[in-house]
C-alpha cells in the first residue's frame, strides 16, 4: 500500500504537467473547434524560453516562470494571428494541416537556432525530500503540484467568474452572436491562445524541472499525451482536461510500477482507447450538438 501511495505522488507530478498542456488543447478547441497540433511544440518552446531565462539570464524560479509564460503567450498570439486567423473561414482540413505545419516549423526553427544537442536545465529548486507518513515527496514534486494547482484554480476562476471568461464560453457556444454583445471575437480568440500557450510554457518549465534534459523534439510525445488527456477528459471541457491529465498520469505511473516500463505507453494508451470506445465524448464531455 505505501508503494501505491508513493506511485500516486508520482502520478500527481506527471498529471500536473499533462494538465497544464492539455488545457491549451481544450481551450483552443473550445473557441475554434480546431485541434492545435502545434501545441506540443509550443510547450517545447516554452521549455526553451525557461532554459534561456534560467541558464543564460540566471533568473530564479518565479521570474523564469513568468518570463517564459509571457514570451510563450506572445508566441501563441502570433501563431494565431499569422497562421490560423487567415484560415478562419477555410475548410477545417486546411487549418489542421496548417497546425501540423506550424508544429514542424517550431521544431525545426528551434533545431536550426539552438542545435540538436540536448540542453541541461539548471536546477532552480533546492532539492530536499520530505517524509509524509509512508510517502516521500521532493520539493520539486511539491513545487510542480502547487504551481499547476494554483494556475488551474486561477484559470477556473477566470473562466467561470469574469466577463472575459464568460465571453470565452460564449464564443465556444456560438461565435456568430458574440459580436452582438459588443465583444470582438478576434480578441477573445487571441486571448485564448495567449492563455493556452502561457500554461504550456508553465508546463514546459515544470517538465524541465522534473526531467531536466530539453531538446527540440521533446514536445512531440508529451504533446500527444496531453492531447489524449484532453480528449479522454472531454475536449472543450476545461475541468475535463485537468481530470483526463491525472487519469493519464495515473495510468502511466501504475503500468510502469507493475509491468516492464516499455509497456507503459502501450498499455496506458490502450486503456484510454478502450475508455473512448465506451465514452467517445470523454469523461466530462457532452455530445456535440451539430448545428446547421
Amino acid at each position: 500500500m505505501p508503494f501505491v501511495a508513493q506511485q500516486m505522488v508520482n502520478a500527481l507530478q506527471l498529471g500536473s504537467i499533462y494538465a497544464l498542456i492539455a488545457l491549451g488543447y481544450t481551450l483552443v478547441y473550445g473557441v475554434l473547434r480546431l485541434i492545435n497540433f502545434a501545441h506540443g511544440d509550443i510547450f517545447m518552446v516554452g521549455a526553451f524560453f525557461s532554459f534561456f531565462a534560467a541558464a543564460v539570464l540566471g533568473l530564479p524560479f518565479l521570474p523564469t516562470l513568468l518570463a517564459s509564460m509571457a514570451a510563450t503567450a506572445l508566441l501563441g498570439v502570433m501563431i494565431e494571428r499569422l497562421a490560423y486567423r487567415p484560415l478562419r473561414h477555410a475548410p477545417r482540413v486546411s487549418a489542421v494541416i496548417t497546425a501540423l505545419g506550424v508544429g514542424l516549423f517550431l521544431e525545426h526553427f528551434t533545431l536550426a537556432s539552438v542545435g540538436a544537442q540536448p540542453r541541461l536545465m539548471p536546477p532552480l529548486i533546492a532539492s530536499a525530500v520530505y517524509q509524509a507518513g509512508p510517502v516521500r515527496v521532493t520539493t520539486v514534486q511539491l513545487v510542480i503540484f502547487l504551481v499547476a494547482l494554483l494556475l488551474m484554480l486561477i484559470l477556473d476562476r477566470f473562466v467561470n467568474r469574469t466577463l472575459t471568461g464568460m465571453a470565452m464560453r460564449a464564443v465556444s457556444w456560438d461565435k456568430s452572436v458574440v459580436p452582438l454583445m459588443g465583444i470582438s471575437v478576434d480578441r477573445i480568440i487571441a486571448l485564448t491562445f495567449a492563455i493556452g500557450s502561457g500554461l504550456a510554457a508553465a508546463g514546459g518549465l515544470l517538465y524541465a524541472t522534473a526531467y531536466p534534459v530539453i531538446e527540440p523534439y521533446m514536445g512531440v510525445l508529451v504533446g500527444w499525451k496531453a492531447f489524449v488527456a484532453a480528449v479522454v477528459g472531454g475536449i472543450g471541457v476545461i475541468r475535463g482536461a485537468m481530470l483526463g491529465a491525472f487519469v493519464l498520469g495515473g495510468a502511466e505511473v501504475l503500468v510502469a510500477a507493475f509491468l516492464p516500463s516499455t509497456y507503459r505507453d502501450f498499455i496506458a494508451f490502450g486503456l484510454l482507447l478502450l475508455l473512448l470506445i465506451f465514452r467517445p465524448q470523454g469523461i466530462l464531455g457532452r455530445r456535440e450538438v451539430q448545428k446547421v
Binding site: L163, M166, A170, M181, G182, I183
Partner: peptide, 11 residues
Amino acid sequence: LENLLLATYGR
C-alpha cells in the same frame, strides 16, 4: 444572469 452580464462587456 451570465447571458445578461455578457451584453455589458463593452460598456
